[in-house]
């Protein structure tokens, strides 16, 4: 399912919409950056509560389809600006990581 369709279906709030036609092929949940770097797969939706600027480079290099910030987390504005420049999709949601993953599972499994 495409990032834009998932965002609409689950009312994710867009923070950086850079390439929303990207296909989501899996999910990875984690806040420790080198775990995400090593274990997330290309095309995953990355669910996290980590919101500092370093998530943009990690998302880019791990090649995830999008970042979904859980628990209503909102990053600094410069994070969203950089993400847009680097082609990274970021959304936020009031749902917990578990609720988001369960919702995504409906579309992916």
């Amino acid at each position: 399912m495409k990032v834009c369709d998932v965002a609409e279906k689950f009312s994710l709030k867009p923070l950086s919409v850079a390439d929303s036609s990207r296909e989501i092929t899996g999910v990875y949940i984690g806040d420790l950056l080198s775990w995400v770097m090593g274990r997330a797969e290309s095309g995953d939706a990355w669910i996290t509560i980590m919101s500092n600027i370093n998530i943009v480079a990690v998302a880019s290099l791990a090649d995830v389809a999008c970042i979904i910030l859980a628990e209503g987390v909102v990053p600094d504005e410069n994070v969203c600006i950089t993400a847009l420049q680097k082609g990274i999709n970021i959304y936020t949601s009031d749902k917990t990581a578990y609720e988001l993953a369960a919702a995504l599972a409906q579309c992916l499994l």
């Binding site: 806040d31 420790l32 950056l33 080198s34 775990w35 770097m37 090593g38 980590m50 500092n52 370093n54 998530i55």
Partner: peptide
């Protein structure tokens, strides 16, 4: 607190 320090960087470098 920025999300670093899991001690997984060098293992990732070896793995990849």
């Amino acid at each position: 607190s920025l999300g670093f320090g899991a001690g997984m960087g060098l293992p990732n470098m070896k793995r990849y």
